[in-house]
């Protein structure tokens, strides 16, 4: 049996103390151990972005990170975007602009967009295309997703 390792994480402003097996990915711990299932698994090899979360403010594929590596980290998942029942501006924009179809890629898309706008609050369309390229959408909703991200960018930083 694998030796369990104690780790602590702050996820969506909540402190978690748990013991994880070293071979568990951050994605597995979020989904299976903590039932935070907004973060999705599709390709499992960092190509699709469905499992994107922010670790210490940076967008990463949680399928390519061991849970033990997140020891001490601050993590934001799609569950943590809305606060006090109020949707984040990006969530609103995704609904408003029709970015959501089947929805399976959407939590990952939102996290990638969140990261993009924290890095670059007023991106050009090209920068949005580049920043969101790590997130596949098979419904082909890219035009709407890009428009949604740009619409939030236009509203300005204060609303992020």
């Amino acid at each position: 049996m694998e030796k369990l390792i104690p780790i602590e994480m702050n996820i969506n402003n909540q402190h978690y103390k748990l013991e994880v097996s070293p071979s568990k990915r951050l994605l597995d711990v979020l989904r299976e151990d903590l039932d935070l299932t907004a973060t999705k698994e599709c390709c499992g090899i960092g190509e699709c972005g469905a499992c994107t979360v922010l670790v210490n403010g940076k967008a990463v594929n949680s399928c390519l990170m061991l849970a033990v590596e997140a020891d001490g980290a601050t993590i934001l998942t799609a569950e943590g975007l809305a606060s006090n029942g109020r949707l984040d501006a990006l969530q609103e924009a995704f609904l408003e602009k029709g970015a959501v179809q089947c929805g399976f890629c959407i939590p990952g898309q939102l996290m990638a967009a969140k990261y993009l706008l924290t890095q670059n609050p007023h991106p050009t369309r090209e920068e949005v295309e580049e920043g969101m390229a790590g997130n596949l959408c098979r419904c082909g909703g890219y035009e709407r997703i890009i428009e949604a991200v740009l619409s939030v960018a236009e509203k300005g930083e204060e609303q992020l």
Partner: peptide
């Protein structure tokens, strides 16, 4: 008209339960 998508709120908040999310 184009009201917000049915199930859209659940999808942007991550509450939507797909089969793999069900335990």
């Amino acid at each position: 008209t184009s009201p917000h998508r049915g199930g859209g709120f659940e999808r942007v908040t991550g509450q939507q339960k797909y089969v793999a999310d069900i335990k």
